[in-house]
């Protein structure tokens, strides 16, 4: 094991991977979307002029092929672009009927370059009605949707550009979990063989894992603030992770308070195994079987939702590998320094 930790090839592997994920992950545009709409009410019985602002779109270049419509259930209301400038536009919608299937209207825009993009539940009918009376024209026949001409990351409503944090924040947790698994393996090996380096490995893997866990928590707090509005939303995943970090801090305290070397190693290894099993069960197993713990609570987009998207996957998997390798790299340096330190101490005695 030490030989692999001292080898250099896997460390150099992490460098191109990190460059790849940072460059690709930051430069790849996200899908076109409607970023803001300057009113949220429409008046029935009038032509409503709605001014919108879009993001990452080519409205002006693709003005000739641009289409816009409001969707309510099965009804489509066609809009007319009255003004297009850069990525903003004003669209007129004649709204005639009073009895639509649903309360909310979805706004959908389509052109040849950007493909089709939408803003769900964009508009609500206002209380008052207009005076004009004209019949509703269902323009379903003209509706044609197409794919975007670019390769993009998905544009999710509350996440927007911050979806890129998937390659940074989420990978911190993966690095931490892999280090903890490594630490568990070292602890088992230490209990079996009683060789000192295994114990040092288990200890320092936990130390490195805590550094990455702290980074995960800090970055997660920033991300949570600007997606869910609070630094610490009451989410089972967050609380579970905090509890796990506390358990491993207890592991470090336990190591600090035992005096006898071999006893310290054995007790710490036992606690490590115990804590890891409890941690894994509570974070990964019980939420899957129990209806009462919700993994996707508080507007938390569940992980499987990302999993489906292949454009994210081709960056996310390399990112997990890259950050894990980097974490192990840092850990191996720490380990080698500590091993030299122990050698020195042995020689002194």
């Amino acid at each position: 094991m030490l030989k692999i930790l001292k080898a250099t090839w896997w460390k150099f592997l992490s460098i191109p991977l990190l460059i790849y994920i940072v460059a690709f992950g930051l430069l790849q545009p996200i899908a076109p979307g409607i970023s803001s709409i300057h009113q949220d009410k429409i008046t029935i019985g009038e032509v409503n002029f709605i001014s919108i602002e879009t993001y990452n779109t080519h409205l002006e270049e693709a003005a000739s092929s641009s289409q816009a419509w409001l969707k309510n259930g099965e009804t489509f209301i066609c809009g007319v672009f009255t003004e297009i400038k850069n990525n903003t536009a004003i669209i007129g919608f004649p709204i005639a009927r009073k009895d639509y299937e649903k309360r909310f209207f979805d706004l959908i825009i389509n052109n040849d370059i950007d493909g089709t993009f939408e803003l769900r539940d964009a508009l609500v009918p206002a209380e008052n009605f207009g005076n004009n009376s004209f019949s509703d024209v269902d323009c379903k026949v003209e509706v044609n949707t197409n794919e975007s001409a670019f390769f993009t990351f998905p544009n999710r409503e509350i996440l927007k550009e911050s979806i890129r944090n998937l390659f940074f924040h989420v990978c911190m947790w993966f690095a931490m979990v892999f280090l903890l698994i490594f630490s568990l393996g070292s602890s088992v090996a230490y209990l079996n063989t009683g060789k000192k380096p295994w114990d040092t490995m288990a200890h320092l893997a936990v130390v490195t894992a805590m550094v990455f866990g702290a980074l995960g928590i800090l970055t997660g707090m920033v991300w949570a603030k600007f997606t869910w509005g609070a630094f610490w939303p009451n989410d089972p995943k967050l609380n579970g992770v905090l509890v796990a970090m506390l358990a491993y801090l207890a592991y470090l305290i336990l190591r600090g308070s035992a005096k006898d070397e071999s006893k310290k190693g054995r007790l710490a290894a036992v606690y490590n195994i115990f804590a890891f099993v409890l941690y894994i069960i509570f974070i990964y197993v019980i939420p899957k079987f129990s209806s009462s713990l919700h993994p996707g609570m508080g507007g938390n987009p569940a992980f499987s939702e990302y999993d489906l998207d292949s454009s994210l996957r081709i960056v996310f998997y390399p990112a997990v590998i890259a950050w894990t390798l980097l974490a192990f790299w840092l850990f191996s340096i720490l380990l080698r320094i500590e091993l030299i330190n122990e050698d020195l101490e042995d020689q002194l005695i």
């Binding site: 606690y271 804590a275 129990s290």
Partner: peptide
């Protein structure tokens, strides 16, 4: 207390 409380917290919640 230091070692036990983090371990029993999720268990207690359940």
């Amino acid at each position: 207390s230091i070692m036990g409380f983090p371990l029993i917290l999720p268990f207690m919640a359940f």
